[in-house]
Nucleic acid binder design. Structure first.
Length: 255
DNA sequence: ATGGTAGAGGATCTA
């Protein structure tokens, strides 16, 4: 089974790139973030015409998540239970015996801001939910834009980013508590290198200078991590004309 | 400290 995640920063703008990417890579499930579409505008025909299905939850202008898949997902959930949140940032479904949770974790804007507090609250609610999901689904995959660079080696200039948004201790603590509950950072199963990123700011020629951060992740439950044979970042998509500022991340799981 | 770019939507807000 192949699972992938991609923050597309507007599915309307990136639709052709997404369908081309699906046809080329043939994942079983692709998690999308920042679709920025209301549900009535979701391009369902373009998705179904290439043999994929979709479940989605969106809103005007901001956020929005979707699961594109070859098979029909079961038990679709479109919010974190018990979290009051008008922002559309979560969608989950089960494919065979694998539970897939797609998240667009809040950016947080600036450490200490109202949006930062919202991010930390959101992460706390996510963790509580994950504890329950892990019991229900031993094969659990959490994919998405985490807006957290877990370690300094995931950051192009750790000194500049020290304590800043995406890198603050509280954010990293939240990431690490997910690791402590048994999730594995699939990328680090195969690659211990620095300077490998999934997001590069549009400004200041950041991509050309490889000034990026690794903030998009695929976390696998212990059970699923045992079957993981590959995790790759499709950096070349960032070279595309009118690219998303994020690259896709992909895992391959053996049967 | 500030600004640079991109997307949505039509002035700013978010990232």
């Amino acid at each position: 089974m192949k699972l992938a995640t991609w923050n597309v920063n507007s599915l309307k703008v990136r639709l052709q790139q997404v369908t081309d990417w699906l046809e080329l890579n043939q994942p079983d499930v692709l998690c999308l973030q920042e679709t920025k579409l209301q549900d009535q505008n979701f391009p369902i025909d373009a998705i179904t015409s290439i043999g994929y299905q979709a479940v989605y939850i969106g809103q005007k202008t901001y956020n929005g998540v979707a699961l594109l898949s070859k098979q029909t997902g079961n038990d679709v959930v479109t919010a974190i239970p018990k979290l009051e949140d008008i922002q559309k940032r979560v969608i989950a479904a089960t494919y065979a015996d694998v539970r897939v949770i797609c998240v667009y974790i809040p950016n947080g804007s600036e450490v200490g801001s109202e949006k930062y507090q919202y991010k930390l609250n959101w992460l706390a609610a996510l963790q509580q939910w994950l504890q329950i999901e892990l019991i229900k689904y031993p094969k659990l995959a959490l994919l998405g834009d985490f807006n957290i660079a877990p370690e300094d080696r995931d950051v192009y200039d750790p000194e500049t980013w020290q304590g800043k948004i995406l890198c603050s201790q509280a954010e990293r603590d939240a990431f690490n508590s997910m690791i402590e509950m048994g999730f594995v950072d699939s990328f680090r199963l195969f690659n211990e290198q620095k300077k490998i990123y999934t997001w590069w700011d549009y400004r200041m020629m950041a991509f050309r200078r490889n000034r990026g951060l690794r903030i998009d992740h695929i976390l696998l439950s212990e059970k699923l991590s045992q079957s993981c044979v590959e995790c790759t970042i499709d950096r070349d998509m960032r070279k595309h004309e009118r690219p998303s500022d994020h690259a896709p991340v992909v895992v391959e799981l053996s049967d």
